[in-house]
Write a protein that binds this DNA or RNA. Structure first.
Lengths: 319, 319
DNA sequence: GCCGTTGCGGACCACACCGGTCCGCAATGC
DNA sequence: GCATTGCGGACCGGTGTGGTCCGCAACGGC
C-alpha cells in the first residue's frame, strides 16, 4: 500500500517535530480516522520505533529513544544546519570523528536539493576556517573524494607536489585518512601503476568523476590501524598546566568542567590542567581566556607562546 | 503491508549508503525478486524521491537530489558525528545558523539511543570549547531548553543572577534567542507573573521538566526581528586589514579564498582583508597564521592584539 | 467518587493491493 | 552481435487495509 507507507513516514515526521500528539490531532493531520492512527502507531512499534502513549486528559503519543535510530526527517533549514555542522566537524575539532563526519556528509550531500546546497556553500564562506598550521581543506573537496571512495569511481585531480609542480593524476581512490591536522587520500595511481598517498589540501578534483572500477586488493600496510577509530581511549598528547590569576569562582564561569580541571590556589588565583592533541589548539585556547596567567608545562607550549607573543607585539606596533 | 513499508525504508537506506546499486543486488539484500524491487523503486518515485536508473552492463539505480529531502537513514557512527557537528554549530561558528542547529539537535537527541548519547557526551568532553569572552553554554542545556520550548513544557531551573545570588525559577519557555555570542531564553516567569529574559549560561535546568502549558500571547516586542534569520545579508561587523610577510603563493596555501582576500604587495609580502563579526575571533584567527604580519585596521584590533601579546609575554616568562 | 478525555484493541466486511511468476522489449557497453 | 541491465504488462491467490462500531482501562479535574 503506497499510501500507507507514505502515511507512516509522515507520522514519523510529525512525531519528530513535536513531542506530544493526541490521536485526534494525528488523525486530522493524516486525513484518516483515529482507529487507523492507532493501527499505524502499532506498525511503527512493530518496526522497532518506540512510540510511547499515555492515557488521560493530558495523554498522547510520543516518540522515544529506541535501540535503533529512526529515519531522520529534517526540514530545509535543519538540513542546512546539519551540513554546516558536519563540515565543521570534518575540519577536526574533535579527534577521531572526522572520517565519520565526512562519510555522513557524503550521504547527505548526495540527496541535498541544489537550492539547499547553494545555501550551505554561501554559509560556508561566512565561516572563518581556522588556519591552524598549514593549509585548510575544503570540505566540499572532502565530500567529493569520500563519494568516489564509497562508489568506487575513478578520480581525476590536479596535484601540486611539495616543489610546487602541478600534475594531473588519475587514481582509484581507496580511503580518506585523517591524522594530526591533515587529510590524506590513499589511492592507486593508474598512470604510475602503484599505490600513492596524496595530501588532500594539495589536490583539486576535476568534475565529472571518472568511470567505476572494481576495487583491487589494498596494499597490506596497516590500513587497519587507521580504520580503528578508537573514539574513547585517546589520551591527550599534551597536558597543559597553568596558573590563572583569577578567582576560582570566576574561572569556573569561563571554563566548563569538560574543558579542564580547576584547583584553587588562593583567593585570586587557581591552577588549570587542560589536555589537547594539538599544541596550537591549546595555545590558542588558553590565549582566549581573558585573564593573566602563567604556563608551567609543557615546555614546548612556553616557547610557542613566547614566539606568538613576540610576533603579535611586532604586528601591533609596527603599523 | 507492514513488510512492504519496512522494505521501502530499507531500500531507501541502501540507496543512501552507496550510490549505484544493481537491481539484482537490491533484490538479494531485500529478500525479494527483482520485479518487486522495480515495483518498490516505482513506489519511491511516486513518493517524490528521484531514483535514477540506467540500463546496460554498468547500469543500476541511484538516488538523486530531489525537491525535498528524503528521510535520512544514518548508522550509529554517523548519528554521533551529526550530533557533535550540530553541537559545534550551535556554539556559534556561523552567524544565523545557531538557532536552527539547536532545533535539529533537539529533534535528533529525542530519538537518539542512550548508548549513542553517552558516546556524544564523551566526545563532547574531548572538545576544547572555545572560551571566547565570557562563559560558554553547554549544548546539552540548549537542547533541553529547545525541547521544552517546542513541546510547551514548563521549565524549572536554578538561576545565578549577576550578583551571584541563586534563585529557583519556574517558567513557561517561549523562545531561545542567540545574539552576539550569547544565548538568551525568553520565557514567562510563573512566580513573578511576567515575561523575563534569562542568560542561558547562568541557568542550570532541573529534570524532569514540568507539565505542559497552553502557550500564552507573546509580549509584542520585536520577537519577529529575532525570528528573521537573515542568513545572507549579514555584512561583517569588523573588517581587518593586514600585511602578511610571506609570499602571496604561500599565503594562498594557508588562507582559503572564502576566508579572506589576498593582494600581492611585493615578492615577500601581501595584503589580507578578512571580515568577522567577532573581534576576538578575528584576533585569534590572524594569530594562528604562522608568519609575521602587521595590523592596519580596525584600531580596536590593534589594541586587542597588543594587550594579548603583553599578556602572553608575561605568561611565558614568569614561570 | 464521578465524569470527561484519551488511548486500546477486538470484530466485521468490502475492497484492492501485494508479490511471485512469466513474458517480451529497449538501452547500453564490450 | 551478444550479454547485461532496467522496464513494465498480464495473471492470480493470498492477505493486509481502513472505516465503523463497540466496550474497556487509565488518568486528571471537579
Amino acid at each position: 500500500m503506497l499510501e500507507t507507507s507514505a502515511r507512516l513516514l509522515r507520522l514519523l515526521s510529525l512525531l519528530q517535530t513535536r513531542r506530544d500528539w493526541s490521536g485526534a490531532d494525528l488523525a486530522d493531520r493524516l486525513g484518516v480516522t483515529d482507529r487507523t492512527v492507532r493501527r499505524d502507531v502499532d506498525k511503527l512499534r512493530s518496526l522497532g520505533y518506540p512510540v510511547h502513549a499515555s492515557t488521560g486528559t493530558t495523554g498522547g503519543y510520543r516518540l522515544g529513544a529506541g535501540a535503533a535510530l529512526p529515519p531522520l526527517l529534517l526540514d530545509d533549514e535543519e538540513a542546512v544546519a546539519v551540513a554546516i555542522g558536519l563540515r565543521g566537524a570534518a575540519g577536526g575539532t574533535v579527534a577521531g570523528i572526522e572520517e565519520t563526519s565526512v562519510r555522513a556528509l557524503a550521504k547527505l550531500e548526495q540527496v541535498l536539493p541544489s537550492r539547499l546546497r547553494n545555501q550551505v556553500n554561501a554559509l560556508q564562506s561566512a565561516m572563518l576556517p581556522l588556519p591552524g598550521r598549514g593549509p585548510t581543506v575544503d570540505p566540499a573537496t572532502l565530500s567529493v573524494i569520500a563519494a568516489t571512495c564509497r562508489d568506487h569511481e575513478r578520480l581525476r585531480f590536479d596535484y601540486r607536489d611539495h616543489d610546487g609542480d602541478h600534475t594531473l593524476r588519475q587514481v582509484e581512490p581507496l580511503r580518506l585518512v585523517h591524522t594530526g591536522r591533515r587529510w590524506y587520500l590513499v589511492a592507486f595511481d593508474v598512470d604510475r601503476d602503484d599505490w600513492r598517498t596524496f595530501r588532500v589540501d594539495r589536490l583539486t578534483p576535476r568534475t565529472p568523476t571518472g568511470p567505476r572500477f572494481t576495487p583491487r586488493e589494498p596494499p597490506d600496510t596497516d590500513l587497519a590501524a587507521y580504520t580503528s577509530y578508537k573514539l574513547s581511549n585517546s589520551a591527550y598528547r599534551y597536558q597543559g598546566v597553568f596558573t590563572l590569576h583569577m578567582p576560582l569562582a570566576a574561572a569556573t564561569e569561563q571554563i566548563t568542567a569538560t574543558a579542564g580541571v580547576l584547583e584553587p590556589l588562593d583567593d585570586t588565583s587557581c591552577t588549570l590542567r587542560a589536555g589537547s592533541n594539538s599544541l596550537d589548539g591549546l595555545a590558542m585556547w588558553i590565549a582566549m581566556i581573558g585573564c593573566e596567567f602563567q604556563v608551567h608545562s609543557p615546555p614546548e607550549l612556553v616557547t610557542r607562546l613566547a614566539g606568538l607573543a613576540a610576533r603579535l607585539t611586532r604586528a601591533a606596533t609596527d603599523t
